[in-house]
Design a protein around this nucleic acid. Sequence first.
DNA 1: CTGAAAGCGCTTACAG
DNA 2: CTGAAAGCGCTTACAG
Lengths: 322, 322
Amino acid sequence: MQTVSNALNAPHRLRPDTLQRVTRSIELLNYRPNRNARSLRTSAVELIGYCVPSWPHGQVHLVMDQFLHALCTSAESSGRHILLFTAPVGVEGMPVYEDLHARRLVDGFVLSQTETHDPRHAWLKEQQIPFVSFGRVWEESTQPGPWVDVDGAGGCATAVQHLYDTGRRRIGFLSWPQTSGLAENRLSGWRARCGELGLPNHDELAVRCRADTIDEGARSTAELLDADPAIDAIVAISDILALGALRELGRRGLVAGVDVAVTGFDDSPLASVVSPALTSIRQPMDEIAGELIDILTTPDPKGPTERLLQPELVVRGSSAPG
Amino acid sequence: MQTVSNALNAPHRLRPDTLQRVTRSIELLNYRPNRNARSLRTSAVELIGYCVPSWPHGQVHLVMDQFLHALCTSAESSGRHILLFTAPVGVEGMPVYEDLHARRLVDGFVLSQTETHDPRHAWLKEQQIPFVSFGRVWEESTQPGPWVDVDGAGGCATAVQHLYDTGRRRIGFLSWPQTSGLAENRLSGWRARCGELGLPNHDELAVRCRADTIDEGARSTAELLDADPAIDAIVAISDILALGALRELGRRGLVAGVDVAVTGFDDSPLASVVSPALTSIRQPMDEIAGELIDILTTPDPKGPTERLLQPELVVRGSSAPG
DNA sequence: CTGAAAGCGCTTACAG
DNA sequence: CTGAAAGCGCTTACAG
């Protein structure tokens, strides 16, 4: 019994011949250890909680399936799995998190859809419930708990650089409302790189869209082009807004990628499904998931527990040089 | 101890005053029963396995987040949760399912992304592993195991009826390749209802798209309109193809919803994000999830374990009468 | 209706 | 390196 347990959990303790003998029997009998008994004894369930976001109508999360798949894969490579649950947004949802942890359905949580001033992080930290966040809360003070995020400013700077390198000299920006730390971060990358390259980067070149919809992207693009017809490129803060830009260009008889270059953000499946295909800033989902699981499952992580990853510009026809 | 257990699991066995006394103490002590101990004893983990689909590049599953959210909510209302895992597609993935069940990480599975001739159903049934399928395998013979599906033929017939009622008389159909049972089913709904209404429904009016992309939808729409310029409506088998149809109409200077009406399938978030918004056939996700969980968690379901649900046509500008 | 007892299937010190 | 024993925290017949 306990030799079998050792063979499974600490094979180095056994003599090679014993190990082989036991392993053979395990296979012969098709023995599979009961995970509940193990969890009861070790008080580790090897399950990680993830709250499935519920989106307000019309909101699209085009890369959630990619993220979930990456998260699952990473969890599995560490012998764990993802447990899905729902909870009210914000601090109202915290009792759900607490209950799942108290009843030992999960060891800890991966937070995503992190909002600016998200209250969950401080709450979980105070309760000493293990978690790691995908995304920052954008507080002045140090963020509670470990996090992984993508360098949105860097990504947008890379997009600007790419547009500059392919001959663009007047680059607009489609943003979200000012209350979002994420939006300000991405916008700052555009502003900074344009400044470094000697390109115009005044506020009139950055339009705030009211919602993340194709209509808003189109409307804002029209606003941008009406105010400044010399614009020859647009960096959009999301693929959806970029799709709106493409539509407005088409409506005006302008050719995307020729007359005006367009880039999006997220490299969602839609990017390669439109024509011309959309140049977009890809978040490295596999890497993000790997870091999240690593931080959450390593008792004493060697590296920092605040990790900023670089996105990757995927160039397609909407910004092709010719 | 066991009175507490009774209070939690069989409160009717206790005298009201005792129950109240115990309940009060439970709350005072903030006691939360350990789920692993319970599962070990009852050998039910109250976890349902769901395999996260991994999509070939460019493939979009625009309603997966809706489905997952609905599934989670239904599972939770029966005291259960969803455990996510990954597995190779087809029969190669079955050892993963078997292992999860053997080690008692899950009680059973919800299958989705069901393919025509999907081998998983027969395999699980033979292994006596509990499961329920969202979607049919489209075999001649009786399908192994319980399933829930949406009446695609009925949905397309409803779309045709709606178009007829709003004055359309020549309705094209954008389909997928012939090898898909799902596609044939939806197509048959268009064919049947057109026939009943005395509208043309010959094969030339149904174009097979080679892929589920906007480009293919646009190309096929062009093909359709070139061959028969009198077409005044198009029923698309997916929202993505419908988006392609909208694009092609725009390219030709035709106004969607006025010159040519267009309907999609799935009522994905994209449907309400384009302009004109897309009329689409909505799969009742909450109901689907409810039935799936009901069948899987009821030892002896009262109703049939093969349930066909009716989709709902959501009418928007792309098919508005005026 | 309530209390003492066994046991679910593991893991882990502890002897041999 | 291997074997007998305790115990993780519940549930569930079984007595009182």
